Computed example of a mutant assay.
Amino acid sequence: MGKLTREAVVERALEIGDAEGLQAVTIRRLAQELGVTPMALYWHFKNKEQLVIGMADHLVEGFEITHDGSRAWQEQLRELVGRLIRVLRRHPCAEDVLKEVDKMDVPAFLRVWDTALGLALRARFGPQESCLITRYILQGAIALAGGSTEHFPDRPDEEREERVRLKRVRFQSLPPDAYPTIVRMAEPLSEGGDAELYDAFGVDLLLSGIESMAARLGD
């Protein structure tokens, strides 16, 4: 292969993480996959901790949203959260990667956080409230991006249908006297729902409370 780049290492690490989980990503495994010695990787990442930071930065790299004073802060904050969810969902391992790192070590994530803080301050929240708001919405976006695989199936229709059927049977087999509502809701609970609705509802759930609080500041 040609010259080994930092980007090539990170992209292969994300491919392994997506397919097998973050625990499968090791320097030795990457070296084997890329056809180099482990020492060649140490030029880019001295250990797995630094590698995971690089993976986290790559996940959010290229995500740009400009703070535009001519647009409503509500619109921009919703756009930021929605786009962040879509960017992170491209990699199933994204949630685990971001849980492993100190966000202070991830420049791309810091840029998103900085924009979100600016929007919260523009909504006239105080410094403490703005910090809390941005922590909640960014962690919420990460969780939504890692949503149930039932919502975002990557398996053949037949396999998905069987998984849904088995899940529905498990719900229906619960004691109805102890869990009457779960049993009655077995079908919608097992199907998971439409991915677009899942995202829109999740973003609305995250931000409607913030917008309501901001409206009270103007009373």
Rank of each mutant, 00 (worst) to 15 (best):
L41I: 14
L41T: 02
L41E: 09
L41Y: 10
Y42Q: 10
W43C: 07
W43H: 15
W43S: 13
H44F: 13
F45Q: 09
F45H: 08
F45M: 05
F45K: 11
F45A: 09
K46W: 09
K46H: 14
K46F: 07
K46C: 07
N47Q: 01
N47D: 15
K48H: 06
K48A: 01
E49W: 05
E49C: 01
E49P: 00
E49Q: 11
E49Y: 06
E49F: 06
E49H: 09
Q50F: 12
Q50C: 03
Q50I: 07
I53M: 03
I53Q: 13
I53Y: 04
G54S: 09
G54V: 06
G54D: 02
G54T: 03
M55E: 03
A56K: 01
A56E: 03
A56T: 00
A56P: 02
A56H: 05
A56W: 03
D57A: 07
D57G: 02
D57Q: 02
H58C: 12
H58I: 09
H58E: 14
H58Q: 15
L59K: 03
L59A: 01
L59P: 06
L59F: 08
V60K: 00
V60G: 01
E61S: 15
E61A: 14
G62W: 11
F63H: 13
F63D: 03
F63I: 01
F63M: 11
E64K: 14
E64D: 11
E64N: 10
I65T: 06
I65F: 11
I65Q: 15
I65D: 04
T66A: 15
T66V: 15
H67W: 14
H67M: 15
D68E: 15
D68T: 09
G69Y: 14
S70R: 15
S70E: 15
S70H: 14
S70I: 10
R71G: 03
R71E: 13
R71W: 10
A72D: 14
A72Y: 12
A72G: 12
A72M: 12
A72K: 14
W73T: 08
W73Q: 09
W73L: 07
W73E: 13
W73S: 11
Q74Y: 09
Q74W: 10
E75I: 13
E75H: 12
L77F: 12
L77C: 06
R78K: 11
E79K: 11
E79H: 13
L80R: 05
L80K: 06
L80H: 02
V81L: 08
V81Y: 05
V81N: 05
V81E: 03
V81G: 01
G82K: 03
G82R: 12
G82D: 07
G82V: 01
L84C: 03
L84W: 06
L84S: 00
I85C: 00
I85F: 05
I85W: 00
I85N: 04
R86K: 10
V87E: 09
V87A: 11
L88R: 02
L88D: 04
L88M: 07
L88H: 00
R89I: 00
R89T: 02
R90P: 02
R90S: 03
R90A: 09
R90V: 03
H91K: 01
H91C: 08
H91T: 00
P92R: 06
P92L: 02
C93M: 07
C93K: 00
C93L: 04
A94Q: 01
A94R: 02
A94I: 00
A94C: 04
E95N: 10
E95S: 10
E95G: 05
E95P: 01
E95K: 12
E95L: 13
E95I: 07
